[in-house]
Amino acid sequence: MPRKAKSAIQQMMDGNPNNRTSKELYKRAKNEKKLEFGNEKLIPPNWLSSGAKNVFKQIVDTYKDTSFLNDADLITLAQYADWYSEYKACNTRLKKNGRSVDGKPSGDLRLKLSISAELDRLAKELGLTPASRASLAIHLNSDSNSDTADHDEFDDEFDDGFENKLRSIK
């Protein structure tokens, strides 16, 4: 999984290790703010089975105190829930019919392996694996943790500081 790029604010807090100019960091920080999405539409699509809808709701509930999932993730989340539901159905058929037919792996076993790979890929995108979750601490909402409550004030000071610095550069 590719490493997630640091935000402009994170780069500044880390001492700007990528040596970006103040103008570049300010522009990036403003663009990152423009790309923030809401999460009002994170409801399971009607085409999902009831089991898949339950998985969808469970994941949304898991991330409810973060800003990690948003409306832009709807399709990926629905795909994961749908594939998960299909994976469970394959397991049920395998238990009933067995893993092999005439000494060869059954179609359900091959399908299960294929679905497993897709689930793994989507799980990484959605932060559902231990490794992908390790990088999610930066996405906590400020009101969910008192230690991060001061960052909203920092953001305002950050914007003002950049604007003043940009004026002095020009």
Results as ranks from 00 to 15, higher is better:
K23D: 14
R28A: 13
R121S: 14
R99A: 13
W83Y: 15
A72Y: 01
L140G: 09
F162V: 05
L136S: 09
A29G: 04
G15P: 06
Q58P: 01
T76F: 01
A72K: 13
R20A: 08
F162S: 07
K57A: 12
A52S: 02
I169D: 07
M1P: 06
D159L: 09
D150C: 04
A117I: 15
D152P: 01
E157Q: 02
G107D: 14
G127A: 11
K53T: 10
I59K: 04
K23P: 03
I59L: 04
F37D: 15
S168W: 12
L128T: 15
S116H: 04
K57E: 11
R3I: 15
K6S: 13
P105Y: 13
L48M: 06
Y63V: 08
M13G: 05
S146L: 10
S100K: 13
D82G: 09
L113Q: 06
N97V: 02
D152A: 02
A131S: 13
A137D: 14
S49W: 02
N46Q: 10
T129G: 03
I59H: 00
D73L: 08
I9Y: 07
G161D: 10
L113A: 09
E32F: 02
L166T: 14
K95S: 11
D14V: 10
K4Y: 02
S114D: 07
D155C: 05
D108T: 03
A123P: 05
I75K: 04
S106P: 01
N91C: 05
D143Q: 03
Y87P: 01
E163Q: 12
K34G: 04
S116Q: 07
K6N: 10
R93V: 09
D152E: 05
G51N: 15
N91I: 11
D159S: 04
I43L: 01
G127I: 12
P105C: 09
L111S: 08
A123G: 06
N54R: 06
L119T: 09
I169S: 00
V101K: 11
A8T: 05
G127F: 05
E157H: 05
N97Y: 11
K33T: 11
T66Y: 09
S146D: 09
L69V: 14
D155K: 09
M13A: 14
N31E: 13
L111N: 07
P45R: 06
K165P: 00
T66K: 06
A89G: 04
A29Q: 03
K104S: 08
G38K: 02
T92N: 08
R167G: 02
A149P: 00
